[in-house]
Each structure stands twice: as structure tokens, then as C-alpha cells.
Design a binder for these strands. Structure first.
Lengths: 345, 345
DNA sequence: ATGAAAGCGCTAACAT
DNA sequence: ATGTTAGCGCTTTCAT
């Protein structure tokens, strides 16, 4: 167990001063050729590595970015992280991840612990609970402190910072239109409650598509799933509601689900009721994840290009960290969705 | 934009020394009641937060652990991270994540950048390429530096460090036996090539189960999928091989797949060939993920308790960081698998 | 060409 | 009860 060697130790060993060592290792022309070579050789032989913590303290830069996401076991979010990681790494940044678990309190705590020196800036997707409470003081304070923040996917418009958002409304409109063009007239919408911005936008897109196609929206055909910490229960509720619709003989021939899980629930009910997808019911959903690809029939999806969202977020943040852009100037980047057609439509 | 206040600034404002401020904020009894109160009040009013970087430099502790995983968009790994996060957080540690992307080079690079001050210890699952090369110098060097390392899932036995492993062999044996007890005699094994330790162990478990049940292993019924960066291609190859078996009329009535994806490929072929699961073919696989839960029929799986693996890894590491255990003493924790029965068997 | 010294923010042993 | 000082590892300005 050989501890890491420091500049001081090298200096002592070679009977030179610390600053001579420091300069030599930076190939400063100030230092004489032979001394420099000797020092560099010695440092290499002892596998010298600068201590990043000391550098951070000096430069007030950690070269680390903090990512706060609601969940990590989630196709969309883990892909976003992938994108962030990719871009950050090639720009020489590390990524530190904290999970809010959709809790307001944990989100606040996470931001506070990371803000005190650990990181240079944040990439955040806001927790459901925070969105419900509409309390964004922790984010505002971080911004006020002069620490750059990039919000992605789940954003709050009034916050003055960069944002990367999915064109949820456009994607939803495209998805709904897609079903209509396949000849479906009565489209069931499976969405979240309105306080979740992305769910809300997708609902709007759905309504917009209907309007443009001169179809009158039917409130019976809109299910706003009640959020539940227990996702089993949430799914159960949803399935029950869909079955209820079928029992009441409320007719529909297409389903647009705002996420894969809702789509999976719908499929389960269809199978139980011996309804064929896509013949009886065409199905499309948001999130081009594992479920869509491997289920049978495979699902037509609206891809949000999660990795690209991650990359763009990291890019915006790192640009600011490198003082490429003034702090006051904020961008909102909109990532377009695309439809990936599979067997369910 | 009000910058964060420092001890020095507080000291200047209140005309006391820095150490008086420091001691007051730590509620040291050395300081007089009124001065202390005054300082605490002032600090609170200005929202003082200690700079963690300075603390790290002083204490030579960052209270951060580094996690290096092959992939993040992966049910098993993201669950492990979840477990790590959970345990680390409640112990006051942050988690910094680096993805090797199954590349040896990137794994080495990641470890080197993080080792220089950023973190106190590592939790690592080794990349496929590293396992193939059998070059573990980067891990060995980290250990030699006195930095604790915990290996999980993909481990290399000769490294002297803590390890958390899945009872892959036992789980595979149980899975195979489970199929045999359901009356299946000819069980097709879909596994990885041998250099991937977990695949290898699962193959061994399969063989062990057959032996114990006095069934002679048939080499035709063992498909070792050739690793491919392009997973589409990898799946395609696998499907082709399964179809080939069917074409040759090599009979099997059960399938044991070492992961969900292989199982999904098998299902696809079965569906194409109009073979019913579970009637004609019973199917069981490793990884209790999203695919298994939401596919139809839902899959019987061997759960590896990923979150528990993460928690245990974090626990082992943090125990060492807290000097609870001597560095030389290494534990290997084996997490038992359990079978989750669903519709495919 | 080399070195001394200050300073990043904080702690703690050691004065006063 | 309060303050001074050294030091964590490094960079950088300013001597020499």
C-alpha cells in the first residue's frame, strides 16, 4: 500500500522547491531543461497524479455536474443519463447522480448537499411531488447563487434557466393524428393528472389533434390515472377503469397511452377481453422502451430521443460552465419526437 | 446573485476570529454563550453552508463513493444503483457514477479520473472486455493505493477485496430443476460465452441440475450466444440458431435463458412457429425485469435481488470507509436468488 | 532558473 | 473566552 505521492514529497526527494516541481510538471519554460526532465521522470516513476480536491479548492471548479432525477430504474431517465454521461465525459466532466424518488423533500436535500462545493452545476428533472406543491425555492436559490441549472423534461417555465424539453404536445398530436389516419375515430386517452406537465401537454396534443380533425372530444374517453406511490395499485386502478368502459359499452377503436406502462395495462385488458391489437384496437404510446420493443404485438411508440435530451442538457450546462454564454441568457431547446411504427397499429 | 458566505467573511463582519466562528458553529463550549448565539444567528441569516471541498481537503475524505458499471440502461444495473444510492444516502454519502460501456479502456480511464481525490472508495462491476482480456491492473492498483473496492456481480476472484455476488450457479440450478419438476426433460439453455463469469456459472448450474436429475446433457441444447456490440444482431443470431434447432427437429420442451432478452428472442421464435408457452415449451429466465412482468405470457424468472446487491455493496464499502473493518479482511457476500413464478411455466 | 509566500475554506492544536 | 498558527495539495505572483 503505497500512498499517492504529492508535489511536496517530490520536492523534498529532489531537493527543489514545490513551485519548481509544479512548474516543471506543467512544462513551464521558466524551468531549466535538465531539472524539468529530472522532475518529470521522477513524477512518472512514482505515478504522480494531481489531487483533484486541492485543484477544486483552488480553482473553485470541480469539473463535476450533478444530476437529479426522479427515478433511475426507468427507461427514459436512464437513457437521459447515458446521454449526459457521454457528453460530460468527452468534455472532461464527471457526473454525480442523486435520485429524488419523486419526493420534494429528497429533491431539496439532494440539491443542498450537492450545491456546497461538490459540483459546478445541475441538471434536474423535477419530482412529481414538487410539481404538485409548486414549490421551487430550492431551484431558485441555486440559480441565485450563480450556479447554472438546466431543467429537462419536467420543467417549470417561470424559472430563469436553460431548459430541454420534449415536444410533448407535438408528439401527442402526431400520435393521435397517426391513429386517426389509420381510420380510428374513437380514441381512448390514458394520461396522468394535469399537474404533471408532460402528461398535461400530451393531453393537450391529443385534444388538439381531435380538434384539427373535427372530432369532438369525449370526456368518457379520457382517463386521467390517479398517481400512486404503489405502481401495482396504480395499474390495477387503470385496468379497472378500462374494463369499466368496456362494460358500459363505451366504444373505442384506438388507444393513445402517455407511457409504456399504461399501454401494457391496456394490452392486458384487451387480451382478457379477447380484443385484437391492432385489428380491433390500435395502440400507440409514449416512451420507446424495452416493453414496446419486446411485447407482443410490439408497440408503435413516440420516441422522445432520451439520449439526445441528455446530451443537449449537458451541452447547455457545460457551455455555461465554460463561460461560453452569459448567465442571464437562457435557452430552451425543444427536442422533436418521432413515431416508431411497429405491430400495434 | 449572492455568493455563498465563508467563515472568513463572517469573522470580518462580526470582528471576531475565524476560529471563533468555526467553533461557535460547532457549538463548542469553549465559546461564550452570547458570542456563540450572535454568530449562529448571523450564519443562519446569511445561509452559511460549509464548503465541502475545503472539508474534503482537510479530512482527506470526500464522503462520495464511485460506482463503475458496464451499462446504465439496464434493469439489473439501474436497480443495483438504486440500492447503492439508498444505502449511501442514509449514511451521508454521495454517489458518483461512471459507465464503462463494456469497454476496458473506458473502465480504466474512469477509475483513474475518479481515484484522484473525487471519491473515497469504489463499487465496480467489471466490463465484458476487461473480463475477456483478464487485465485487472487498474483495480489492483486502486486497492494497492489503499482505496477500498467492492466488486459486485461481475467479479474476478483473485482480487483481494470485498465482493457481492449473486448465487448464479444455485439460481440456475434451481431454475433448471424447476422446469424438470414441471415434467420437462429436454431443456434448451440459452447462455453467454464462458468468459462472462455470470453466464458461465449459470451454465454450470444448469449442468449440475441435469446431473442431479440423472439427465444427460445434450450439447445440441446449449446455445452460447456470441457477444455482439450490436444487440440487434446478437438477437438475430440467437433467433436464427433456435430456428435452426427446430428445423433440425431437435426436440425440447423447456427453455432456460440466462437473461430476459434471450427469453424475449425465444418467445418471438416460439410465436412464429406457433408453439405455445407454457403448453409446448416452458420458459424461465434470469433477471426479473420489466420485460418479464409485462410480456405475454408473463415470464417466470429468477430474481437476483438487484437492489439488495446494491445495498450490500454500499454497506460493505462504507463499513470499510468508516474503519469498521480492517482493510485486509475481505468478505464475499452471496445473495441468494429466488424464483418468481408467472405464466410461462 | 529557482524559490518564497500567499491563498483557496476549513479545522484543531496551541497560545493568550 | 478568544485568537494565532499551521497545514491539507496545489497554483501563481513576486522575489532573488
Amino acid at each position: 500500500m503505497k500512498k499517492r505521492i504529492t508535489l511536496k514529497e517530490i520536492a523534498n526527494e529532489l531537493n527543489v522547491s514545490i513551485s519548481t516541481v509544479s512548474k516543471s510538471l506543467k512544462n513551464s519554460p521558466e524551468i531549466g531543461e535538465d531539472t524539468r526532465q529530472k522532475i518529470i521522470a521522477f513524477a512518472k516513476a512514482h505515478n504522480y497524479r494531481p489531487n483533484n480536491i486541492a485543484l477544486s479548492l483552488k480553482n473553485r471548479k470541480t469539473k463535476t455536474i450533478g444530476v437529479i432525477i426522479p427515478e433511475i430504474v426507468h427507461y427514459f431517465f436512464s437513457n437521459v443519463i447515458n446521454g449526459i454521461e457521454k457528453f460530460a465525459n468527452q468534455s472532461g466532466y464527471n457526473v454525480i447522480i442523486a435520485v429524488s424518488n419523486e419526493s420534494f423533500e429528497k429533491e431539496v436535500l439532494n440539491m443542498e448537499t450537492l450545491a456546497n462545493g461538490h459540483i459546478d452545476g445541475f441538471i434536474v428533472s423535477i419530482a412529481k411531488e414538487t410539481l404538485k406543491k409548486q414549490d421551487f425555492h430550492h431551484i431558485q436559490e441555486t440559480i441565485d447563487l450563480g450556479m447554472p441549472v438546466v431543467l429537462f423534461d419536467r420543467v417549470f417555465n417561470d424559472l430563469k434557466c436553460d431548459k430541454v424539453i420534449v415536444d410533448d404536445k407535438g408528439g401527442a398530436e402526431a400520435a393521435t393524428t397517426f391513429l386517426i389516419e389509420k381510420g380510428r375515430k374513437n380514441i381512448l386517452l390514458l394520461t396522468t393528472q394535469d399537474y404533471i406537465s408532460v402528461g398535461n401537454l400530451r393531453t393537450q396534443g391529443y385534444l388538439e389533434a381531435l380538434k384539427k380533425q373535427h372530432i369532438i372530444a369525449d370526456n368518457n374517453l379520457i382517463i386521467k390515472v390517479i398517481d400512486n406511490k404503489n405502481s401495482e395499485q396504480e395499474m390495477f386502478d387503470l385496468e379497472w377503469q378500462i374494463e369499466n368502459l368496456l362494460d358500459q359499452e363505451i366504444h373505442f377503436d384506438g388507444i393513445f397511452a402517455v407511457n409504456e406502462i399504461y399501454a401494457a395495462s391496456a394490452m392486458k385488458v384487451m387480451r382478457k377481453r379477447k380484443l385484437n391489437i391492432p385489428k380491433d384496437i390500435a395502440l400507440i404510446c409514449f416512451t420507446d422502451g424495452v416493453i414496446s420493443r419486446y411485447s407482443f404485438p410490439s408497440l408503435t411508440t413516440v420516441s422522445q430521443h432520451a439520449e439526445e435530451i441528455g446530451e443537449s442538457s449537458a451541452e447547455l450546462l457545460i457551455n455555461k460552465l465554460k463561460d461560453q454564454y452569459p448567465v442571464e441568457e437562457n435557452f430552451t431547446k425543444i427536442i422533436k419526437c418521432s413515431i416508431i411504427e411497429r405491430e400495434s397499429t
